[in-house]
Nucleic acid binder design. Structure first.
Lengths: 246, 246
DNA sequence: CGCGCTATTGAGAGAGCTCAATGTGCGTGG
DNA sequence: CCACGCACATTGAGCTCTCTCAATAGCGCG
């Protein structure tokens, strides 16, 4: 029997959280009953803008989102990439004003959750509050790793590291098949994520390909030599905190 | 009448939180009753190490702490600086393993808080849980700003931006006097925070000084021209989320 | 068929790095 | 009170990673 639309969507969140913490049956029931408002975004479309004061946040159901800041004369830094099961703007629940913009990287389906509902749940169910808090902390852990790359890793290593990270994150939500996954970035957006120019990304990616580490074509990326990639990137997935807790 | 030592220390946290959210009398009472264990650290001493699984976190009472990651061959990225009133490793409450190291930047006094006590409080007082959650979100907001600097700002602007940030953060806890504050970094640690080499930091700082923006001597930094500094850095303090909420 | 977006390539320039030497201030011990 | 050691700061010179500018190529879609 097919699930209701709202159940199907909340299921994404449950699956994600359940992969990281222990959820009781009650927890699951509560999550399944959150009112959701499903919405589609086109690639490149802004969802919540820098400076706004949102009263809802969004759960990614399908496609990728990303967050970015703009500084003088069109310079852009991409702060994070978000895949299904994540709530990229959960911070807006406790921080009134957006200090960056959330947008769709590809065509994307998201489920909006009202802050009032989040408040109701976090007040009544401390364990669920803890789960959500934890998600925002993992977010921050990823920021720390990116900072380290931006400050101390060269272009080649930094790119390799990002590929490792996205591979592991997508694996965790079942979106990798045959070492292959959708990687819906343009070279320009990849450049903005890595703090480079698109010209240099082009050369860096070419090197990664010609060194036999990966292939990337038509928004599909395939890992050719995981071991070498991990070695190059000095990739240690601890910071993704995928282990269960609580 | 002098406060008890533990009251005096918890007061630091209350003052900090009260500057950002509304605390009820009950909230304050709860905070004042947290068992604390005060401890001193020498400059440079590690407090919690990468890979550890701490069962407590620490409130800064005096001095500065910092967090960092080490990568191959001694490269170091400083991820954050922490001043009195902050709880730099609060994330360890929900993330079992440390993905970075917390250390003392200067001689520092901290108050240790057991995770069990945090759990007791956050479970029973959702509003306080929210306050603490919010603190970790502000942490993450600062990460985002630093990432933007690391990826997209040049050395001069990045350094100016950090000075602006620390000025505002210290102002908020009353540690600025006459546009002057303690800035206990060496050029080497500043370099690791900015993702530069100490040689380049030396030249960058010289430029900031000779452009009449600031002075910095004997670990004391004075802002000479705040307006120009803000303009150079394109500094907008929104991301510090100093406005009250909730 | 042609427009628009994305990717690719070349060549020159520059911000920031590396290596290495020198300077400065301060605490310690004789 | 001076000598010494140590940590930190400063400076020079050459180098390289990444950027800028600009041109060309490929591809999907109306």
């Amino acid at each position: 029997m097919p699930l209701h639309s709202s159940e199907r969507t909340a299921q994404a969140l449950i699956t994600k959280l359940a992969g990281r913490v222990s959820l009781t049956n009650e927890d699951c029931q509560v999550l399944l009953n959150i009112p959701l408002h499903v919405r589609e975004y086109r690639s490149g479309e802004d969802i919540v803008h820098d400076g706004e004061t949102p009263n809802q946040c969004c759960l990614v159901l399908d496609g990728w989102l990303f967050r970015y800041k703009l500084i003088d004369e069109g310079k852009r830094q991409i702060l994070s990439l978000h895949v299904p099961g994540e709530i990229p703007d959960l911070q807006s629940f406790h921080l009134r004003v957006m200090d960056h913009t959330l947008a769709a990287l590809s065509t994307a389906t998201v489920a909006m959750i009202a802050h009032t509902d989040v408040r109701r749940i976090t007040t009544k169910y401390p364990h669920l509050a803890g789960c959500l808090w934890r998600e925002t902390l993992i977010d921050a852990a990823i920021f720390r790793e990116w900072m380290t790359g931006l400050g101390r890793r060269n272009a080649y290593v930094r790119a390799a590291h990002l590929v490792c990270e996205m591979y592991v994150r997508l694996e965790a939500v079942g979106l990798v098949e045959n070492h292959t996954f959708r990687f819906p970035l343009t070279q320009e957006s990849l450049a903005d994520a890595l703090g480079l120019t698109s010209v240099h990304v082009n050369r860096t990616v070419r090197a990664l390909k010609s060194d036999g580490l990966l292939t990337w074509k038509n928004r599909e990326l395939t890992i050719i030599d995981w071991h070498k990639l991990v070695t190059v990137a000095q990739f240690d997935p601890t910071y993704l905190h995928l282990m269960k807790m609580g």
